[in-house]
Write a protein that binds this DNA or RNA. Structure first.
Lengths: 139, 139
DNA sequence: GCTTAAGTTTACGTTAACGTAAACGTTAAT
DNA sequence: ATTAACGTTTACGTTAACGTAAACTTAAGC
């Protein structure tokens, strides 16, 4: 089968918790290219996946441009050797960036643990004995 | 000792790789409050740490407002029981958010691995035998 | 005394990522 | 035939997070 299930714009909007305006905006920017049935947009499953990847990227602070660049890595239109090497470099630096972000997140999670401990300790004792406060200077 | 080492604005700018404009902007927004020596700003180590935390937040896509909220969790001006509970709730949702982000990052890292494998395979064989392409639909 | 470097305030400009609204078309049900 | 639900285009508005420039002060070095 060449054409799988398609979706309306409001279906996708509901599924992903965004507005239709957002999805049209993504099209305006060339991030998705739904087919038309008369006037209306029909979204393929590939479009769905692209939107999912875009939103994933946004959740970790990527710009739309970065999301596109990222997604474009997946499609194998990079034939010649030079482009493949440049793509690998790109992958490398992206990976480093992501690992940095993981470190940042872990540091924050540790901070949250600390805050929560302090809170609970403070709640446990009606007259709370002051614990010494560790300041968050690591990294 | 009550007052540790202080720093000029350009020192901090250089240390963190941002412009002085950025640091002044943060002050404008109430994120830092350097002391003045005459006209000039003197940044304490506490200021340094706040900036560090801000930049850490930004790296994972937090807004400045979110960064402040996050940082404010650290200082124990939350005395009464109700506020402590609300703070704990806040910690909880932040933690969930951060864990979601870690999942997103892991998914992307997996994607990068795949892309890299494809690239290297394609480079290894001068006449590259087409491998079947796995599409990234997980999660 | 002059220049250079670093600092200051004030203020307008810019980009990204949509929100919001107006004005209109199409299909289906009442 | 009219309301309702969904879709469309066009276009102006908005917020965040600075960039950039102008015009000025202060301290340091020669």
């Amino acid at each position: 089968m060449v054409s799988g299930k398609t979706h309306s714009i409001s279906e996708l909007a509901k599924e992903f918790g965004v507005t239709t305006r957002t999805i049209r905006f993504y099209e305006e920017k060339g991030l998705v290219s739904p087919v038309r049935e008369g006037q209306k947009r029909l979204y393929s499953n590939a479009d769905r996946v692209r939107i999912k990847l875009i939103l994933r990227g946004k959740r970790i602070g990527m710009t739309l441009r970065e999301c596109v660049d990222f997604i474009d890595m997946y499609d194998p239109e990079h034939n010649n050797t030079e482009q493949l090497h440049s793509l690998i470099d790109n992958v490398k630096s992206r990976r480093e960036h992501l690992l940095q972000q993981k470190n940042d997140i872990d540091a924050m999670l540790a901070g949250l643990d600390e805050v929560q401990d302090l809170c609970e300790a403070s709640l446990a004792s009606t007259s709370p004995d002051k614990k010494t406060h560790q300041n968050p200077d690591k990294d």
